[in-house]
Simulated assay, not measured.
Amino acid sequence: MSAIPADLPLRSDLVGEEPYGAPQLDVPVCLNVNENPYPLDPEVVEAICRRVRKVAPGLNRYPDREHEDLRRALADYLKGESRACLGPEQVWAANGSNEIMLQLFQAFGGPGRTVLGCDPTYSMYPEYARDTFTNWELAHRLSDFSLDMDTTIERIKALGPAMVLVTSPNNPTGTPLPMENLTRLLEVCSQIRVAGAGPQARPIVVVDEAYIEFRDPGTPSAVSLIGRYDHLAVSRTMSKAFAFAGARVGYLAASREIIDAVRIVRMPYHLSALTQAAALAALEHTDLQLARVDQLRRARRATAEWLAGQEYHGRPLTVVPSASNFILFGTFPDRDAIFEAMKDQGVLIRAVGPEGYLRVCMGTDAEMERFRQTLVGVLEGS
């Protein structure tokens, strides 16, 4: 990125900042951004084309700004996927879960407000805070990357945050959030006053479930608690398990009151007619869209077992247990050197998260074999 010239009146807090983004490089094996590596089924592609053809003649008109058909379809999906009985008024969609999160920060953050996260976690969260002039605070996780519940609750009581933001499974560690811990956070937040807000305001708890479909079967989702807790908001995406990263569709499940608050800050007609059409077509073929999830789970388990058997300089690798489609592993005194050596041989992973760790996303069987062969060579040659 070129330097911003001094004669442009860039906000002072943005001077020296770089745009967020994982490397997008033309290499044979890309395992760095946690996508579903398998292309859409031809039947889904044809369904998308049919729906787009249907709406294309009307693109001279603005789309349904409330995207009511899509909200109904998402509510139906959540009922089947997580047994959550939500009405369409309890669901909201946007251009990826990134826009969902930004809308939450816009609605509940701002000057004089605080959002509490638990690190290590997704590196975009502090950028949402920066962009909305919200104070970003942290409670550090335990050494196994699970939540330090006592410390987190102490921070909630001390800060009075407008939002408590937790991620399950967590990015970049893959750590799930047990439901009993989430329930405990919800109960605590129901008794805490929000600093900088009215006397009745209580923190909302936001759970980012971008990778939730990769959890082990039988594990409940936070959306199942929405009927019990009006201050719970659950963000999801179609980018990961749903193999829909290029379509940019994220969604929020919450009480009607939280959804209405988000609707206040949304841009007019923020979700295009083409996006709505593509998402509806994908949701009509949920089984096909999620057909590879079991295979990716198996790849995660097999890769974790294999990594645990590898050594670096005579020491076994550390492999962080994951409920997602990626694995965090290490530790390396110079992880950037390992990353660069892998990249030079055509395998792109990610140097992200706690110092010394690398992260690999699950790819196709052929891609994972290439990853294993390349990593062995790099470790032996380092």
Rank of each mutant, 00 (worst) to 15 (best):
A47S: 06
G117S: 15
G246M: 08
F332K: 04
Q276M: 01
R370D: 11
I100N: 07
W92N: 13
D131H: 10
P28W: 08
H140P: 14
D64K: 05
V206E: 11
R215Q: 14
A6I: 06
H313E: 15
P37N: 09
L159P: 08
S168R: 10
G363H: 06
L159D: 05
E367W: 01
L280I: 00
T173A: 01
D69C: 04
Q276E: 10
K54D: 15
P161H: 02
E180V: 13
R215E: 15
P23I: 00
Q373L: 14
Q310T: 09
A3L: 11
V44F: 04
I338Q: 09
D26F: 04
I4V: 10
N171V: 11
E68P: 11
M368Y: 09
P172Q: 04
N135P: 07
C85Q: 15
V376T: 11
L358N: 01
N171D: 15
E305D: 15
I192D: 10
V352M: 15
R335T: 12
V205T: 13
K157A: 08
E355V: 05
R83G: 14
E257P: 05
L8W: 10
A3D: 14
P5A: 02
A162I: 07
Q106A: 01
A73T: 06
G381Y: 13
V207Q: 10
Q90R: 12
A93V: 09
G309L: 01
R300L: 10
F244T: 12
L147G: 03
Y357W: 14
P5Y: 05
I100A: 04
N95S: 05
I4M: 06
V319N: 04
G353K: 01
P176N: 13
V293Y: 08
S322P: 03
R300E: 10
E66V: 13
L86G: 00
T237N: 03
E46P: 05
Y312R: 05
G87I: 09
Y312T: 02
Q200H: 11
P111A: 08
R83Q: 11
G174V: 01
T132S: 03
G110S: 01
I338A: 00
T152V: 02
L375D: 07
L31F: 01
E209A: 02
P88E: 11
C49E: 15
P126C: 01
V15R: 15
A84H: 08
G381V: 12
